[in-house]
Computed example of a mutant assay.
Amino acid sequence: MTDEWPELDLRAAYEVQDETLRRRLARGEHLVGVKLGLTSRAKQQRMNIDSPLVAWLTDAMVLPAGEPVPQARLIHPRVEPELVFVMRERLAGPGITAARALAAVERVHAGAEVIDSRYRDFRFTLPDVVADNASSAAFAVGGRGVRPEDLDLALEAVLVEVDGRVVDSATGAAVQGHPGEALALAANDLARRGLAIEAGQLVLTGGMTDAVAAPPGARIAFHFSNLGSIHLSGGA
């Protein structure tokens, strides 16, 4: 978008994102949470982006267990493993620390996000991807939830398996040094827009590894140390 509109800045990009959410809600979708994008320094460097971003999740993005990646409504889907927080309390910045953020969390789950950029070759600037709701397409959440105090989130590891072969791995430390830092960042970022993370909402804290392509026929699994596994199919 910035190729044709170089004046697009982050303020305007978030206005576009919020207007897109308003239209989703108007057609019957329900807000279920927020997500962070580009929380991994490695992903920031690969995408030539210098900071994380926040975007919206609705119930229309939920990928039920066993359902394939919805190829018919996507362009070039990719999937990545995430740690997902379910909030017990409302979390409103500014000034939220990682410790305060984690105290508001009910449970931690394994997660998988399907990202799908509107931009050719996933090439974009930070305002571009913010306006595109951080490439949000779909997400799946594992069934096993663990209290955050019962888990070393920085050391929680994941193995990425594609068609039976392990292709990547990471720990929670890849997400802003600690997933709690990502949660605090989301609350403080939303506060600048007069918004907060509400009790009961989900927070996807950002890809732990780089995303892998999810074409038809692909078999993808994310195996977590303590949170179980999530299996995804690229579909037919």
Results as ranks from 00 to 15, higher is better:
Ala13His: 14
Val146Cys: 13
His109Gly: 02
Pro68Ala: 08
His178Arg: 04
Ala214Gln: 09
Arg22Leu: 03
Arg118Ala: 08
Ser169His: 12
Leu232Asn: 00
Arg41Val: 15
Gly37Tyr: 06
Ala26Asn: 15
Ser169Ala: 09
Pro77Met: 10
Gly143Asn: 08
Asp121Leu: 06
Met61Ser: 13
Pro70Thr: 03
Gly66Thr: 09
Asp189Thr: 09
Gly111Phe: 03
Ala140Trp: 04
Leu126Phe: 12
Arg107Trp: 13
Ala213Leu: 12
Glu198Ile: 02
Ala221Gln: 10
Arg193Cys: 00
Phe224Leu: 10
Asp3Trp: 09
Ser136Tyr: 00
Gly177Phe: 00
Val129Asp: 07
Leu74Ala: 08
Arg22Asn: 14
Ile75Arg: 07
Leu36His: 10
Leu83Gly: 12
Thr39Arg: 04
Ile96Trp: 11
Met87Asp: 01
Leu183Asn: 01
Glu67Tyr: 09
Leu159Phe: 02
Thr209Glu: 02
Ile230Leu: 12
Ser169Asn: 03
Pro6Gly: 05
Thr205Arg: 04
Val54Ser: 09
Leu126Met: 14
Ile96Thr: 15
Gln17Thr: 01
His109Ser: 04
Asp152Trp: 06
Phe122Glu: 14
Ala12Val: 05
Asp132Asn: 15
Leu8Gly: 08
Thr209Trp: 05
Leu185Arg: 10
Pro52Ile: 05
Gly217Glu: 05
Ala12Arg: 13
Ala137Asn: 15
Gly95Ile: 09
Gly95Gln: 04
Ala13Lys: 11
Pro215Ser: 01
Ala214Thr: 05
Glu15Phe: 01
Thr125Glu: 04
Ala196Trp: 06
Val84Phe: 07
Asp116Val: 01
Pro179Glu: 07
Asp128Lys: 06
Gly95Arg: 14
Ala170Cys: 04
Phe224Ala: 01
Val166Gly: 01
Ala13Arg: 12
Arg165Asn: 05
Arg118His: 11
Phe222Asp: 10
Leu25Pro: 07
Ser117Gln: 12
Val162Met: 11
Ala55Leu: 05
Arg90His: 13
Met87Asn: 06
Glu181Asn: 10
Gly200Thr: 13
Lys35Leu: 14
Leu159Thr: 14
Ser117Ala: 09
Ile49Tyr: 03
Ile75His: 06
Ser135Ile: 08
Asp152Ser: 15
Leu74Asp: 06
Asn188Cys: 08
Asp59Asn: 14
Ser40Gly: 14
Gln201Glu: 14
Met61Gln: 15
Arg120Ser: 12
Ala154His: 00
Pro64Arg: 10
Leu232Phe: 02
Ala211His: 13
Gly180His: 07
Arg193Val: 01
Asp3Leu: 12
Val146Leu: 15
Pro215Ala: 03
Ser233Gln: 10
